[in-house]
């Protein structure tokens, strides 16, 4: 075993890239769940975002436009979920699962002409001075803009939820929609907006996979990342900064286990392969054991003004 061949600087750098899609998707889902809606369609919105972003990226040659369009597509798909669950009062779990299936099918339909094509990808950002710092420069300050955007978004979501009136209203809707309704807040409208935000984030997350991380289009390429994002929301007990920790922990263990294998570590491969999932489950158990999960009280409940 030659652990010295693992370069911690490069490891942390690739960890940040590897974690960015689940970070974005989980952050979007956090806002959705904070408003009291459980959208299990993250995977479907992600993969739709992946192909929509990729298609626009290829056709326009601009990855930035690709990302924007991916966010719009994700939001549009989530709007379908929003209309079904908020206006037609369908079951959120079933509708969310349906959304995943629709997204997977839709993406492979749209994606047919885009197989095996290379896309323009985001350039790494060179930040003056910071990027040239030894060690830290390579580790933290030489990524593409989306990595920083995702971290900034964590800060924004946290600040909005904690300090603003809008955040307070969103949380009120998620804790008790009846009380919020009685106070005159438009529960359905607020939830739809939260769902749209979640869809846009999932779309961005998908586009990050197809435009930066892989970068190309293949069917089914999100390969379950949306489900991990859902787990990370619970893992984080619905707190934005913990989403960051959860996503980086998961991304870190994934990257580390591959590096350990490549370095020839004398640990059974099976254990290494399952370690990311094992650690996620372990942390979930520990959090649950503490009792207070922090789940919004009205999560998954259907709201109708007359009831």
């Amino acid at each position: 075993m030659d652990l010295s061949s693992i370069n911690p600087i490069l490891l942390i750098a690739s960890l940040m890239v590897s974690a960015t899609p689940i970070l974005l998707a989980a952050l979007g889902e956090l806002v959705v769940e904070k408003s009291g809606v459980l959208n299990l369609g993250v995977e479907g919105m992600m993969i739709t975002g992946a192909i929509c972003g990729f298609a626009i990226g290829v056709n326009t040659g601009s990855p930035v436009l690709g990302f924007m369009f991916a966010a719009i597509c994700g939001a549009l798909l989530s709007l379908a979920f929003g209309i079904l669950t908020q206006y037609l009062l369908s079951n959120q779990v079933a509708t969310g699962l349906g959304l995943t299936l629709v997204g997977l099918g839709l993406s492979s339909l749209i994606g047919k002409p885009y197989e095996g094509i290379k896309s323009p990808t985001l350039q790494k950002m060179e930040i003056p001075i910071l990027s040239d710092l030894p060690i830290v420069g390579r580790m933290l300050f030489s990524h593409d803009p989306m990595v920083y955007f995702s971290i900034a978004l964590v800060a924004v979501v946290w600040a909005v939820l904690k300090y603003t009136r809008a955040g307070l209203i969103l949380r009120a809707v998620g804790e008790s929609h009846d009380a919020a309704h009685a106070l005159g807040y438009k529960v359905v409208r607020i939830r739809i907006m939260a769902i749209l935000f979640g869809g846009a984030c999932a779309g961005l997350a998908g586009a990050y996979i197809s435009l930066v991380r892989v970068p190309q289009w293949t069917e089914g390429m999100t390969a379950g990342a949306g489900w991990i994002a859902l787990a990370i929301v619970v893992f984080a007990s619905w707190k934005p900064w913990r989403i960051l920790i959860g996503a980086y922990l998961f991304g870190g263990v994934t990257v580390l286990q591959l590096n350990l294998q490549a370095a020839g570590a004398k640990v059974p491969v099976e254990v290494l392969s399952m370690s990311p999932y094992l650690i996620t489950i372990l942390v979930l158990v520990i959090i649950s054991a503490r009792g207070n999960h922090g789940a919004p009280a009205a999560l998954g409940k259907i709201f109708h003004a007359s009831r």
């Binding site: 899609p21 996979i209 991380r213 892989v214 190309q216 293949t218 990257v255 591959l258 490549a262």
Partner: peptide, 11 residues
Amino acid sequence: DPAKEADAAQA
């Protein structure tokens, strides 16, 4: 699993 394969190649 394209993402995992990309990570493996990267490692």
